[in-house]
Simulated scan of single mutants.
Amino acid sequence: MESGEGQRGKAGEDEVMLWSWGAGSDGQLATGTLEDQSLPQPLRSIPSSHPVSHMACGGAHAIALTSNRKVFTWGRGTHGQLGHGDLGSCLKPKLVDFLEGFIIHNISAGWNHSGFVTDTGRLFMCGDGSFGQLGNGDNQSHSLPEEVLFFLSKRVDQVACGMRHSLALFRSGSHGSSIYGYGSARHGQIGVQLSRHRRIIIIPEVILGFEDSRIVHVCANGDHSAALSAHGQLYTWGKGFNGSPDCHQPQVFTSSLTFSQVALGWNHTLLVSDGQVYMVGRMLTHVHRSTGEHLDSKMPFFHGKDSVGSLVLKRITNLIGERVVGVAAGAEHSAVVTDNGTVMAWGWGEHGQLGLGDTDDRISPQRVGLGSKGSDSCPLLRVFCGSGFTFVAKHVLDS
């Protein structure tokens, strides 16, 4: 699931900085209700004195990191993933008091767990730990952020939370990187080959293969993991797409393209190269409710020769002519932002997560209207997807 820097002015009290739509059954839309929304809803539930600079969206909860490094969470809290010290859900953003003494610079939201990295490289996690995905050597869940003690002598750069697993990235000098995986390992998503009867790792283990690569980004979703190198090379591992075999160790995507962004869904991967979007895997695993057809079989693609395993890279042709600057993937829907501030979405739409005013699926990118203060004249937008919901944030530039 990335933004520029420059001059920022003070946000006005009536200025809309955040929009949400899609599934709202656990309060994940921050609208104050439990209703789904099929059109973008302008939000003012985070004070304008705390403009959002980054977000992370999980199964049914969300995390917002503000420009002044405050952390807000909301949505489903039944496993403690909101970090408030209880198991209650929140219909509106609530400050994570525990993190007030730290400067947070990286966040991630999994299905029912969350991760927070400080500016000094300390990693805190909370939520569901039943698969060891909190990394502290047990299967306990925690409702307050707890430091991952394994990394006390290391400096964590990024954390990525999947459905039941986690990744932690470290920079090893100026040229190499280390990635550790922990949690559910059934499909190879933590990048470590295990014995036949060992399905989880409760203490982080290093993933081999990155010693000579400078990794700049890691991501996880569902049972998949991916990493991007500084040279734009993609590594993937985890559950196989389209019935292909699971991969228990990182494999390099064979491509002549240089990738700048990657986003993982449950059954597809989105990639950005030179402002264009490409896809690997199947976007919609279910069939259309009316026709019984797989919708993505009709989606217009350019098929390339680049591949990973038996899968082929596909260029999404409907975005030709648009230069994409941001990309996000939910369970089975996708969204992009172009350089002129246009938001487009496609895929699974049952909960309104495409923001098009209905619950239909779409086989190709469709423009999302954000209203009078929306994307028509606002190029500084960022998009984030949870499993069945979407957020767009107006990017606030640091002063």
Results as ranks from 00 to 15, higher is better:
Q7M: 14
R8D: 13
G12I: 01
D14N: 14
G22L: 00
D26S: 06
D26I: 01
S38V: 11
S38M: 05
H54L: 15
A60P: 01
H61G: 04
K70Y: 07
G88I: 03
K92M: 03
S114C: 12
F116C: 09
D119K: 13
L123K: 09
C126Q: 06
C126L: 03
G132V: 05
S141W: 05
E147W: 05
R164W: 08
L169Q: 03
L169R: 12
R171C: 15
S174D: 14
S178K: 10
G181N: 08
G183D: 13
S184W: 03
R186T: 13
V192E: 11
R199L: 14
S213N: 11
R214K: 11
I215K: 02
V216I: 15
V216H: 00
A220R: 02
G240E: 12
D246H: 14
H248M: 11
S255H: 04
S255A: 14
Q261M: 09
H286N: 13
V287L: 10
G309F: 10
I320P: 02
E322H: 12
A329Q: 02
V336A: 03
N340R: 10
V343F: 06
G349N: 09
Q353S: 03
L354R: 03
L354K: 04
T359Q: 05
R362K: 13
Q366M: 13
S375D: 06
L380G: 06
R382F: 06
